[in-house]
């Protein structure tokens, strides 16, 4: 599955991109900007998860379920088990989200289109309803996440940034390997014609289930990293339906063209938000909403389509 993957151009550009972002963020740029890069890389993982689903024309309006679940898994592990090690944190976040995705996947894999979107939304709101009202889960305050450690040593902001870069690179490789595998291709074929795929002897539901779990893991990992980067989790900014909406928005804004697009899009999103909030604190939602409409109308391929226009390797694609 992974054979020769490092020689692929997508992966090389991807690794290069992450390296540059991490180097810029840790050595050159002021700290607040590097925060935006860090949040962008983390959120980008969840967007990558959505993008993978979207390639089968499944759009989840409740992906904040896994994003928030990963984040809360990190918070719970810290509260009850005292876990602050960054490796354990990411593993816990991914595993928790993966298990939840596996269980719910049995139900969701039968659904398509708007029903898939609505059922995802319902599940995410069930979690929200629990988190927002239950005192032992922090209710609407959420919980603080203490700074991450690695093998017992304080990791620091830069260390965490390197770690996030590392996780993102691994995810890029994994996602690319999955998408170019026959399983990955299969799900694109599902989008075209489900019945044909069944005739070919493949189980559509199983293929979707696997895809769904992968997507959940990515979103969970994103939540875990975000929790560590922000130092705080709460249901309104991690699990509410509007957070899911934001993730879908970033997916559209980024474009579905390339596995690197989600990260570019997510970083772009962080910057719009920071600047909009600073210069127009009472209009930042309007700016984001306007951007969303503008992208839908004038840039249907997302930001990535801009890159493609100037991409010197264009010939190699297709």
């Amino acid at each position: 599955m992974f054979k020769g993957i490092l020689k692929e151009q997508t992966i090389q550009v991807g690794i290069g991109f992450v390296f540059i972002v991490v180097l810029l963020g840790t050595f050159i740029l002021p700290e607040w900007m590097s925060n935006n890069f860090m949040y962008g890389l983390s959120r980008g993982l969840a967007v990558l998860g959505l993008m993978i689903l979207w390639r089968t024309n499944l759009v989840s309006f409740g992906h904040a379920l896994y994003y928030g679940f990963g984040a809360y898994a990190v918070a719970m592990a810290q509260k009850y088990l005292g876990v602050t090690d960054v490796f354990l944190r990411i593993i816990i976040a991914i595993t928790a989200a993966g298990i939840l995705g596996f269980v719910l996947g049995f139900i969701l894999r039968r659904y398509r289109e708007i029903f898939f979107a609505m059922l995802s939304l319902a599940f995410s709101m069930v979690l929200y309803g629990l988190l927002a009202k239950a005192e032992f889960l922090g209710s609407t305050d959420g919980m603080s996440i203490s700074p991450s450690t690695m093998f017992g040593f304080e990791l620091g902001r830069f260390g965490l940034f390197y770690f996030i870069g590392f996780v993102v690179i691994l995810s890029l490789i994994f996602a690319h390997a999955y998408l170019r595998s026959s399983l990955g291709h299969l799900t694109t074929a599902i989008m075209d014609n489900e019945i044909r795929v069944e005739y070919l002897g493949y189980s559509v539901e199983k293929a979707i289930h696997i895809k769904y779990v992968i997507s959940a893991c990515l979103a969970g990992g994103a939540g875990g990293l975000m929790a560590a980067a922000l130092g705080q989790v709460d249901p309104d900014s991690m699990v509410l339906w509007s957070v899911s909406g934001e993730l879908v928005f970033v997916t559209i804004m980024a474009g579905l063209g390339n596995i690197l697009a989600p990260f570019v899009g997510a970083i772009f999103f962080e910057f719009i938000r920071t600047y909009a909030y600073e210069f127009a604190p009472q209009a930042w939602q309007m700016i984001i909403g306007g951007t969303l409409l503008a992208i839908i109308f004038f840039l249907p391929g997302g930001l990535w389509s801009l890159f493609q226009k100037i991409n010197p390797f264009k010939k190699e694609k297709k």
């Binding site: 979107a117 909406g245 879908v248 928005f249 939602q285 984001i288 909403g289 969303l292 409409l293 839908i296």
Partner: peptide, 10 residues
């Protein structure tokens, strides 16, 4: 749906 979401924000 996403477009109406943007409109909601606005």
């Amino acid at each position: 749906v996403l477009a109406t979401f943007g409109l909601f924000w606005i």
